[in-house]
Amino acid sequence: MSTDSGTPSYVEKGGFDRDTNYIEDRITDDPSSRYPVEPGRYRLVVARACPWANRAIIVRRLLGLEDAISMGVCGPTHDKRSWTFDLDPDGLDPVLKIPRLQDAFLARFPDYPRGITVPAMVEVSTGEVVTNDYPQMTLDFSTEWTRYHREGAPDLYPEALRGEIDEVAELIFHDVNNGVYKCGFAGSQSAYEKAYDALFARLDWLSDRLENQRFLVGDTITEADVRLFTTLARFDPVYHGHFKCNRSKLSEMPVLWAYARDLFQTPGFGDTTDFVHIKSHYYEVHTDINPTGIVPKGPDLSSWLSPHGREALGGRPFGDGTPPPPPKESETVPAEHWA
């Protein structure tokens, strides 16, 4: 199957094994490279439902890259072939003029054998996918596109802290970001319980780390916070019930709940989060887990806007920078989808 957002493959004894072989080409600030940084040349294709794509949306907005990198948004559901542009008039992306993301992958690789995943960077002139390597993509937004960052853009990947950011992000990926999928798509009781224990052990570790510091690394928001946030945002609406990650809800873990609300209420985080798309995707697409396709009505999400008190820990969310301006009207998530 062909989605990014957790379509399973299974390994021995029923464990979930994510295919992490992505197209490794990079867009770099080197004019002699095959894919040099160039405003307007590339289109970021995302789905707001997907946590990996949500990262790219957040980083693009925090850095102010909207004018340099356009964005196409797929709908929350898809078939086995590909994410589709069903939100757009006539079901076509208005820039790429294609109905499904698969077309961009096949334009470059006619026999592409892997999943058609978001986020993906597509070269507008050729209609060909450049990369879907989502972990590298956001780092390159921070380090390769600096000439096109907005005035006041934060440094999400400060050089002096990169080792620690990478270390924390790696732990979060294995036990939390991917850990929830290991629970949800486990094919055996033992594999599920192993993943469940690792997930909540890491969440407890994160709670301890964040109890007396506002952000994961240093006193500002970094790439590590972006990577954790997108899983936390989906925890109660999806992972707690749908993926059986049910020792505790996020709202029952005081430190992480306050931390998540702090980020959610920071421009660029909550206003890029679409809970309607999130719930629609997981509950309607994962029919092996939810064969009826019924989307639960709850939980009540209004408490995401309640006071969090994390300001008392100090820290400077944007460092020496400033919050991003409101999103473009064409990229605004309807308030009823997140507030």
Rank of each mutant, 00 (worst) to 15 (best):
Q102K: 13
G163N: 10
G14K: 04
K328A: 09
D208Y: 15
V276I: 14
D300T: 07
E223V: 09
L96S: 01
P36V: 01
V226R: 03
H174E: 05
A312I: 12
Q265V: 07
S125Y: 12
Q136T: 10
L87G: 08
A160K: 14
D19Y: 06
V124N: 00
Y239V: 03
R60C: 06
H78L: 09
T222D: 02
G40Y: 00
Y10I: 10
N21C: 13
I27T: 01
L232D: 00
G187Y: 05
E164P: 01
S280V: 02
R55P: 07
F85S: 01
E123G: 03
G268D: 02
P299A: 05
N177K: 05
I98V: 15
R150G: 01
P8N: 04
P36W: 08
T143Y: 06
P327R: 11
V59A: 01
G270D: 04
L305G: 05
V129C: 07
T230L: 04
L263H: 01
M253Q: 13
D271I: 12
T126Q: 03
S251T: 12
R147G: 10
P31W: 11
T220H: 12
Y196S: 02
D208T: 15
E123P: 04
W145F: 15
E24Q: 15
K279P: 01
P307V: 05
H240D: 01
V124R: 10
H286P: 02
Y181V: 08
F200Q: 05
W145L: 09
V285C: 14
Q136N: 11
V122D: 00
E24G: 14
F269W: 04
T231Y: 07
W205Y: 10
N178H: 11
C183Q: 04
K194N: 13
P135L: 08
E151K: 13
A224K: 00
D67L: 09
S2D: 07
H277N: 10
T220I: 02
T143H: 12
E159G: 07
E128S: 05
D19T: 07
L203A: 06
C74P: 02
D67E: 14
G298H: 11
M253V: 10
K13D: 15
A312T: 13
I57G: 09
R209T: 14
A107R: 15
G309C: 06
D93A: 00
F16R: 04
D166C: 00
V176W: 00
D93Y: 04
E223M: 02
R100E: 13
M137F: 08
G15D: 13
G315F: 05
G319R: 11
S32A: 14
G319E: 13
Y10N: 09
P89H: 11
S5G: 10
A201S: 04
P99Q: 12
A233K: 05
V168P: 03
Q189K: 12
Y192W: 08
C245P: 07
D4G: 15
G152S: 05
L313E: 06
D19M: 09
G72T: 08
P94R: 08
E128W: 08
Y259K: 09
H277L: 05
T292I: 08
Y134G: 01
L63Y: 01
T28E: 09
L92H: 11
S207M: 06
A339K: 15
